[in-house]
């Protein structure tokens, strides 16, 4: 099973940005996405639930939502994100703090099972990020990955 080809690293990264863009649809004002400093793009695929190869990688990106007021719009942004993702057919499988300025939303994309989260910080900032399932770095099985 683990020997099946997958999307490659670049495609996984693009998919993450696509999902985040989906989540951000219709937000007004539109936040500027600022990448988390020193947050690595790649990890090894450790002990995967599908029992497959650990030579695959996991791609992960996280952003701050900048240029928007802190706290005040957060509840509404959370609502909009949930609506956007549900509309796109993804699964919002866990939430916390809805209606407050410190929401937490956990999403699994369908059909490809990327995991996303929107998290409210104690200071009123919001961040959004996503992580891919295990993928072959080059898309085809075989070879050890090169991590950053």
């Amino acid at each position: 099973m683990s020997d099946k080809p997958t999307i490659n690293q670049d495609q996984a990264e693009a998919r993450i940005d696509e999902l985040i863009a989906e989540a951000m649809k219709g937000l007004d004002p539109k936040p500027r996405l600022e990448r988390f400093e020193e947050h690595d793009l790649l990890r090894r695929c450790l002990d995967p639930a599908d029992g497959g190869s650990e030579d695959r990688v996991v791609v992960s990106k996280r952003y701050w939502l900048e240029d928007i007021p802190k706290k005040e719009p957060n509840a509404q942004i959370a609502e909009q994100v949930i609506a956007n993702m549900k509309k796109a057919g993804h699964s919002v499988f866990s939430t916390n703090g809805l209606g407050t300025d410190k929401p937490e939303i956990f999403i699994a994309s369908r059909p490809d099972d990327f995991r996303m989260s929107l998290i409210g910080s104690a200071d009123g900032s919001l961040s959004i990020g996503a992580t891919s399932p295990c993928v072959w770095q080059g898309g085809t099985p075989g070879g050890e990955p090169t991590l950053d």
């Binding site: 995967p48 639930a49 599908d50 499988f93 866990s94 956990f106 099972d113 992580t131 295990c134």
Partner: peptide
């Protein structure tokens, strides 16, 4: 510490989500 990364989660590295 809002999240913990466990090797035993499903094949991703994201945090174990809090209970809903």
């Amino acid at each position: 510490v809002d999240s913990v990364v466990s090797t035993r989660t499903p094949s991703t590295g994201i945090p174990i989500p809090p209970p809903s």
